[in-house]
Simulated assay, not measured.
Amino acid sequence: ASGGRDIGKLVANKLNIPCYGREILEKAAERENLSVEYVEELEEGSTGSFLYSLYKISSMADGTMGGATAAEKLNSDEINIIRELALCGPTVFVGRSAAYALNDRNDVLKVFVHANHDFRIKRACEVYGLEEGSVKSILKKYDKRRSNYFKMNCGKDWNEIRNYDLILDSSVLGIEKAAEIIAECCK
């Protein structure tokens, strides 16, 4: 609820380039002939599972790594989709570990947008229609899922500042100003 998706869309509009976020997930679902809902669950759900982590650790330890799990296949599909889209020209990617997918390129600006707790709660209620009583637990749950997804697929800490070129606080700057700053950095 820090506004990353809205900021990404504004940046894309300002630069007159495409913006992809959830569309990557939808393309991956289409490639695998799976429902978007199932792919969504695989993307952020399975990697946070204690059993999944135990499976990965034990299969590495005993050398029976075997075939890729559905979640690993999905991650590979998403990386390939991001790389294919990036070949078409300048693009804004929101989430999906795009910076990791494009880590071999030197023309990528890696941005992390965050906001203070009160701003996120207010925005989640206003933008997503969530009730204030449930917002804190929902935000905590999604932050954990995203962090786990990033850790499992990129091997890095989602909140580690060294992973990014630019870190913006949308609760201080606002959505529009954050987009202006990013767009200016891309010119």
Results as ranks from 00 to 15, higher is better:
residue 6 D to Q: 14
residue 7 I to T: 00
residue 9 K to D: 02
residue 11 V to G: 07
residue 20 Y to G: 09
residue 24 I to T: 08
residue 26 E to G: 03
residue 34 L to W: 02
residue 37 E to L: 07
residue 45 G to C: 01
residue 48 G to F: 00
residue 49 S to R: 01
residue 50 F to I: 04
residue 51 L to E: 07
residue 52 Y to Q: 01
residue 56 K to F: 00
residue 57 I to N: 11
residue 60 M to W: 00
residue 61 A to C: 05
residue 63 G to T: 01
residue 68 A to N: 13
residue 70 A to F: 12
residue 71 A to V: 15
residue 73 K to L: 14
residue 75 N to Y: 15
residue 75 N to W: 15
residue 77 D to A: 11
residue 81 I to K: 02
residue 86 A to D: 09
residue 87 L to M: 14
residue 90 P to T: 10
residue 92 V to I: 08
residue 95 G to W: 09
residue 96 R to V: 07
residue 96 R to D: 10
residue 98 A to D: 10
residue 103 N to V: 04
residue 103 N to A: 08
residue 104 D to G: 14
residue 105 R to F: 02
residue 106 N to Y: 06
residue 108 V to K: 05
residue 112 F to T: 03
residue 118 D to F: 08
residue 122 K to W: 01
residue 124 A to L: 01
residue 129 G to F: 06
residue 134 S to D: 15
residue 135 V to H: 01
residue 136 K to N: 14
residue 136 K to Y: 12
residue 136 K to M: 11
residue 136 K to A: 14
residue 138 I to E: 15
residue 141 K to F: 11
residue 143 D to M: 08
residue 147 S to P: 07
residue 149 Y to S: 14
residue 154 C to G: 02
residue 154 C to V: 08
residue 157 D to A: 07
residue 157 D to E: 15
residue 160 E to F: 11
residue 163 N to G: 03
residue 165 D to M: 06
residue 165 D to T: 04
residue 168 L to S: 05
residue 168 L to K: 11
residue 169 D to V: 02
residue 170 S to R: 05
residue 171 S to I: 08
residue 173 L to Q: 05
residue 173 L to A: 06
residue 173 L to C: 01
residue 174 G to V: 01
residue 175 I to N: 06
residue 182 I to A: 11
residue 184 E to F: 12
residue 186 C to Y: 04
